[in-house]
Amino acid sequence: MPNRILTTLCGFAALFAFAAPAQAYWEYGHESVARIAWLQMRPDTRARVAALLRQGRLLETPDCPLATIEQASVWADCIKPLGDRFTYAYSWHYQNVDVCKPFDLKAACKDGNCVSAQIERNARLLADSKVPVREKVMALAFLTHFVGDLHQPMHAGDHADLGGNKVAASYGIIAGRTNLHSIWDGWLAERAISTPPAGPAALLAQVSPAERERIASGSVEDWSKEMWGKARDLAYQTLVGDPCGAGPVERQVMDEAKVRGLIPEVRQDVVEGGIRLAKLLDDALGPEGKAPGQKR
């Protein structure tokens, strides 16, 4: 009996040594993107964001508070169990742009029901001085979450498999219902962000002012194409090889070597999301009230 207990404990220890999952991406990853944005945005923008967050009660979602930007970053996921109140937003978290065809955002964003279109829409709402405060608070929460979503490659690229949700995979010894999408959402993102130098401030500190300016440039469509390319060239290929081929017959394993190779890439995705979110907020809440695609 003692040997059996020892074996079980060793198994759990090995699992957590490999994955160390404090929180999954839908919390830790989003919160990290939001904190990087908070650190990167201008002081006047930070004050305006804080003022909006103080009005979070206007959304009447007490179980999904918005007192901090980290809470705002997960609000769009937190409200999913509220049913009919927010079911209209379900398709706003992703865009199924086929990685085996030329990049085509329009086909994946019919009627604006995709993550990139909603990033632009919510930035416009924040920039519009005529929009009521309640709508601005909601726009802030949606925008903060959706920029994080876009910078998780499996929300930006797809091959008729629900962004990798249908691609069965194991993360080390963690198997069961695990798939390519959930690995990038959770285990891999948490491992990357918590790898020393760990945390949002450390990730941002490694990026020079010139590099931050480069990252913040471009359009939401440019960022979408970049992340779509990473879905194809990194997420799919690392695990299943050519996503446009026949595909593996057996469940693939994201082993330690693959994880180590992807850590720098995932850290880059998180810091890019934070810097770009800060840019959108600086523009929308600044004196000119700029939003993507608008000319002032």
Score class of each variant (00 low, 15 high):
23 Q>H: 04
24 A>K: 04
24 A>M: 08
25 Y>A: 09
25 Y>M: 05
26 W>A: 01
27 E>W: 08
28 Y>D: 05
29 G>K: 04
31 E>A: 09
32 S>I: 08
32 S>M: 11
32 S>A: 15
33 V>P: 00
33 V>L: 05
34 A>E: 02
35 R>E: 15
36 I>E: 00
36 I>W: 00
36 I>C: 01
38 W>T: 11
38 W>G: 08
39 L>V: 11
39 L>E: 15
40 Q>H: 12
41 M>Q: 14
42 R>V: 08
42 R>Y: 08
43 P>V: 11
43 P>E: 12
43 P>W: 13
44 D>R: 15
44 D>I: 09
45 T>S: 13
45 T>H: 05
46 R>F: 04
47 A>C: 09
47 A>R: 15
48 R>Y: 10
49 V>E: 11
49 V>D: 10
49 V>I: 14
50 A>G: 10
53 L>K: 04
53 L>C: 09
55 Q>M: 10
56 G>S: 10
56 G>D: 05
56 G>H: 05
58 L>M: 12
59 L>E: 13
60 E>T: 07
60 E>R: 14
61 T>L: 07
61 T>C: 09
61 T>A: 11
62 P>W: 12
62 P>V: 11
63 D>Q: 14
63 D>L: 13
63 D>F: 07
63 D>Y: 08
64 C>K: 07
64 C>R: 04
64 C>S: 08
64 C>E: 07
65 P>G: 07
65 P>S: 08
66 L>Q: 01
66 L>V: 02
67 A>D: 13
67 A>C: 00
68 T>V: 03
69 I>G: 00
69 I>Y: 00
69 I>H: 00
69 I>D: 00
70 E>Y: 02
71 Q>G: 04
71 Q>F: 02
73 S>M: 03
74 V>D: 01
74 V>C: 03
75 W>D: 05
75 W>Q: 03
75 W>V: 02
75 W>G: 03
75 W>H: 05
76 A>M: 08
76 A>K: 11
77 D>Y: 10
77 D>G: 06
77 D>M: 03
78 C>I: 03
81 P>N: 06
81 P>M: 06
82 L>D: 05
83 G>N: 06
84 D>I: 03
84 D>L: 11
85 R>I: 08
85 R>Y: 08
85 R>D: 13
89 A>G: 02
89 A>I: 04
89 A>S: 12
90 Y>C: 00
91 S>I: 01
